[in-house]
């Protein structure tokens, strides 16, 4: 029962990935693409933690934490570059 509900949640997140990738491709400005990338990362954090449940390994939580930190720094650096203050 638990695994069934979580599989549906995984499918919904996969569907949202497809929609966000469409915005990433057609995005009119740079900022649109960065926002789409940020959204992809935040949903990937949830996805990796769900995979940690399916595989039963707690180390994946650390992986998602490091992934989130790297993406956060990436977004800040891109924004600083666009403001020409880097």
């Amino acid at each position: 029962m638990v695994n069934l509900i979580l599989t549906i949640a995984l499918l919904l997140i996969g569907l949202s990935f497809i929609l966000v990738v469409i915005r990433f491709i057609i995005g009119e400005t740079v900022i649109d693409r960065v926002v789409a990338l940020d959204l992809l990362t935040v949903s990937s954090i949830g996805l990796i933690v769900m995979l940690a449940h399916f595989f039963g390994r707690a180390i994946y939580i650390d992986v998602s934490l490091v992934y989130g930190i790297l993406s956060f720094i990436g977004v800040i650096v891109i924004a600083k570059y666009l403001e020409k203050s880097l």
């Binding site: 549906i8 949640a9 995984l10 919904l12 997140i13 569907l15 949202s16 990935f17 929609l19 966000v20 469409i22 915005r23 926002v35 789409a36 959204l39 935040v42 949903s43 949830g46």
Partner: peptide, 12 residues
């Protein structure tokens, strides 16, 4: 997961 789906619809 449903809220994440709403976010991606909104971003489109």
């Amino acid at each position: 997961a449903i809220f994440i789906l709403f976010a991606s619809i909104g971003i489109l």
